[in-house]
Write a protein that binds this DNA or RNA. Structure first.
Lengths: 107, 107
DNA sequence: TCTGTATTTCTAGACTAATCGAAATTACCG
DNA sequence: CGGTAATTTCGATTAGTCTAGAAATACAGA
């Protein structure tokens, strides 16, 4: 993953409203959630929601699929894992950071 | 981690310049990197660098320690892991996303 | 105390994002 | 083909970010 792309994704997730949307989608899991339900459960006006969804869509963090009248949104886990991987990638390239093995209690 | 805090951290990482700084620090590992070296290796003007560092510092993604004249910066791995944890937290709360077990090679 | 180096603060301009109401569009169903 | 519901686009406002040059400050050594 290119740095600028990672930054775009991180930035997309960096807005509280978008992060809320995204997490809601993560929670919804594979069945996803229609835009309308997102709107209702998060209390975000349609236009704002649509705007943010477009941002999330643009960086591939979210996918959409039409189901009859409604548009079902889903979190793209694969991209999220890629992003997490990018963040951790060079961690410990040097030395310490004894947490890669899962032990970061050292804090 | 509170959502707004996570969003702030994600947002901090969402700027290409800051992401570059942060990664440089991640690479530097436990020995960290002085501001001056960051400036030289990344080619970022002092004021801009200082500005971004402050942002990173504010969200605790980076720490600083004075060593004589220079200020040594270090990536805060613990916070990064917390952030990653937050992102993955509810993943699979529902069902699929068969990658939590460490198998996301599908990418 | 004076000097030089390292780093931050001040300042300002250009640009981009966030928000939301209203209108337009799209897709489906009868 | 018309109606209905879901979603997006438009348009405008507001606020905040990114950038960096110049000046100010902090620190260590002589």
């Amino acid at each position: 993953m290119i740095l600028d792309q990672a930054a775009s994704r991180l930035e997309a997730l960096g807005n509280p409203t978008r992060l809320r949307i995204y997490r809601s989608l993560v929670r919804a899991g594979s069945q996803g959630s229609p835009v309308g339900r997102l709107k209702a459960s998060l209390g975000i006006p349609s236009s704002t929601l649509s705007h943010h969804l477009k941002t999330l869509l643009a960086v591939e963090l979210v996918t959409q699929e039409r189901q009859a009248t409604t548009l079902v949104c889903r979190a793209n886990y694969e991209v999220m894992h890629e992003l997490v991987g990018f963040l951790v990638e060079e961690c410990c390239a040097d030395a310490s950071c004894g947490s890669a093995a899962g032990n970061d209690a050292a804090a």
